[in-house]
Simulated assay, not measured.
Amino acid sequence: MKTKMQNLNELLQELGISKVKLAKYLGVSRQMIYNYLELENLNKWPKEKKLLLFKLLNIEDGSDESIGKIKVTAEYLEDVETRLNQNVKTTDESYFNLKDLSKEEQVLVNDLINLIKEKFTEEKNKNTYYEFLYLYHVLQSIDSIPEIKYILAYLSKTTGFSDPMEFKFDETAQFILESIVFTAMNLYNNGGATKSKLIASHERFVKEIENTKEEVLSRTQQLTTVKIQALRELGYDKITSENAQEVINKIAEIQSRKVVIGEKQN
């Protein structure tokens, strides 16, 4: 005897509703659709998703009786397709305009949005916020630190999503970093380094970050000093949209003067 979920799966196939389209309609990832369909019955589904499915199929509940009463006619197919497309369109437009993106890019953006939403609602735990906060920081830095792309590619390969010999970026640099990370991960997983060496290494790691922060702070303070000097020389109290370019030019002039003075002193 078929289970309720098997009956539902067969109905979805008969209606021509793909897992991708159903995922968009429900606002979840494709993987979550597979997870839902493996559950014992529809009562195990999140209430919001279950009601959306009932609305799509135009049924009151997920019982065998309700699903069994469905007659897949041309008119019913058209009605389901209309509801499906309307909700997908509304979902896509509710985030932001994707019309300038390629179809492939639109799918990826929507998958990312749905996955993040899913993680913060149905799969939320005490680590979720920081997982995505750090991911956000990584994405903000991806243009200035090329190694981030190589590490992401490495993780994609080790988790089975990409071919291990696929190189979408600088092949040589990517190959080198992947080899280094692989070696490091083996050390990590096998406990191949002594605790004292790890402590010393982490101390160097912390020190390097602190030095970098100090350098950034120093440059920021220097720039602030030069900006104040530029405003003073120009007779302004602050930077506005009207004087911004003039102030920037004055800052450049002051910095060049300091370079010349430094060269003369040397």
Results as ranks from 00 to 15, higher is better:
30 R>D: 04
21 K>V: 03
39 L>E: 15
84 L>C: 03
59 I>Q: 09
82 T>D: 07
86 Q>E: 05
26 L>H: 01
24 K>T: 00
77 L>G: 11
94 S>K: 08
82 T>V: 06
67 I>V: 15
60 E>W: 11
79 D>C: 06
30 R>Q: 10
78 E>Q: 14
84 L>T: 02
36 Y>I: 01
39 L>N: 15
33 I>F: 00
75 E>C: 03
65 E>Y: 15
42 L>C: 07
91 T>L: 10
66 S>V: 09
94 S>C: 09
26 L>V: 03
32 M>W: 08
64 D>G: 10
65 E>P: 14
81 E>V: 05
88 V>R: 02
36 Y>R: 00
33 I>E: 01
22 L>P: 01
36 Y>C: 00
28 V>N: 00
72 V>G: 07
39 L>S: 13
24 K>R: 15
89 K>T: 07
87 N>D: 08
92 D>C: 03
26 L>D: 01
57 L>H: 12
54 F>Q: 00
89 K>H: 05
35 N>M: 08
90 T>E: 09
30 R>G: 08
52 L>H: 04
54 F>C: 02
72 V>H: 06
50 K>D: 06
88 V>K: 00
55 K>P: 01
28 V>A: 00
94 S>N: 06
85 N>I: 02
54 F>L: 00
53 L>M: 15
48 E>T: 05
74 A>R: 13
70 I>G: 06
80 V>I: 11
75 E>D: 10
38 E>P: 07
40 E>R: 13
76 Y>N: 08
35 N>I: 12
91 T>E: 10
65 E>K: 15
78 E>S: 14
25 Y>T: 02
19 K>Y: 02
43 N>S: 14
74 A>I: 12
32 M>H: 09
65 E>R: 15
64 D>M: 14
63 S>M: 04
55 K>V: 02
56 L>S: 02
72 V>L: 07
63 S>T: 15
28 V>G: 01
86 Q>T: 05
24 K>D: 02
61 D>N: 15
20 V>I: 12
78 E>A: 12
63 S>D: 04
65 E>C: 14
81 E>M: 10
73 T>D: 07
